[in-house]
C-alpha cells in the first residue's frame, strides 16, 4: 500500500527534516490545493487552509497509521477536515439546492441514467451548472468518486463516514443533480 518513496518520506517527516517537508509539499501540494479549493469559496481562503493542512501533517505525522489508509488518503482526510472546519467556523452564507419535498428521491434510476449516462455536450454543460448548486460536501464526494476514482472505503475514511452511507449519498447526489438539471431546463 505504501511505496518505498513514501516510507522514506514519512521517515524524513518524522525526523522533521526540511528536505522531506519540501518533498512532501512538492509531491502532494497540487492534490491538496485542488481538494481545498473545491470546497472553499475563494483562493485566499484556500491558501490559508492549504498551509494549515501541511502544518498539521508535519505536526501529526506520528499519528499516521499505514494499515488504515494510504499516505495520500490520510493527507486528503486532513485537507477535507480542515476545509470543512473552516467552512463551519466562517459560516459563509451560500445558497444550495435542498430537496426538501423529496422530489429528487422520487426520480427513477432510468431517468437518472438517461440524463447522466448518454453522452451529450449540452447535458455536460448543464451538469457543470448544476454542480455549482450542490453543497460543498456533496460536490467533493462526487469529485472524489468520479474524478479521483477513489474507492468507497477511502472516501469513507476521508469523510469519516461509514461506506454504506457514502454509497447512499452518491445515489442521492446523482438524483439531486438530475433534479437540478430538470429545473434548469424548465
Amino acid at each position: 500500500m505504501v511505496t518505498d518513496i513514501e516510507i522514506n518520506l514519512i521517515e524524513g517527516l518524522k525526523e522533521q527534516s526540511p528536505k522531506a517537508q519540501q518533498m512532501m509539499v512538492e509531491r502532494y501540494g497540487r492534490h491538496v490545493f485542488n481538494q481545498v479549493v473545491r470546497l472553499l469559496p475563494s483562493v485566499e481562503d484556500t491558501e490559508e487552509v492549504y498551509q494549515d493542512v501541511f502544518l498539521k501533517v508535519f505536526l501529526n505525522i506520528n499519528m499516521y497509521n499505514e494499515e488504515k489508509a494510504s499516505f495520500k488518503t490520510w493527507v486528503s482526510r486532513i485537507a477535507y477536515n480542515e476545509s470543512i472546519t473552516w467552512l463551519r467556523h466562517k459560516r459563509r452564507e451560500v445558497i444550495y439546492f435542498e430537496d426538501q419535498d423529496g422530489e429528487a428521491e422520487r426520480l427513477s434510476e432510468a431517468e437518472v441514467e438517461a440524463t447522466l449516462g448518454h453522452p451529450d455536450p449540452e447535458t455536460v454543460q448543464l451538469i457543470r451548472a448544476a454542480l455549482k448548486h450542490l453543497p460543498p460536501e456533496e460536490r467533493s464526494l462526487i469529485t472524489m468518486f468520479y474524478y479521483e476514482e477513489m474507492s468507497v472505503k477511502d472516501i469513507a475514511y476521508v469523510t469519516d463516514s461509514p461506506p454504506n452511507t457514502i454509497g447512499s449519498k452518491l445515489f442521492r447526489t446523482r438524483k439531486k443533480l438530475c433534479k437540478i438539471i430538470q429545473m434548469l431546463q424548465s
Partner: peptide, 29 residues
C-alpha cells in the same frame, strides 16, 4: 463507467479550477 456525462462535467470543472499560486509552497516553507 455508466455516468459518462457526469464524469466529463467533473473533469471540466476540475480543469477550470484556479491555478495554484507559484509562491504558495515557498510561503508555506
Amino acid at each position: 463507467q455508466q455516468d459518462t456525462n457526469l464524469r466529463d462535467a467533473i473533469r471540466l470543472e476540475e480543469e477550470a479550477l484556479p491555478p495554484m499560486p507559484a509562491d504558495l509552497n515557498a510561503r508555506l516553507m
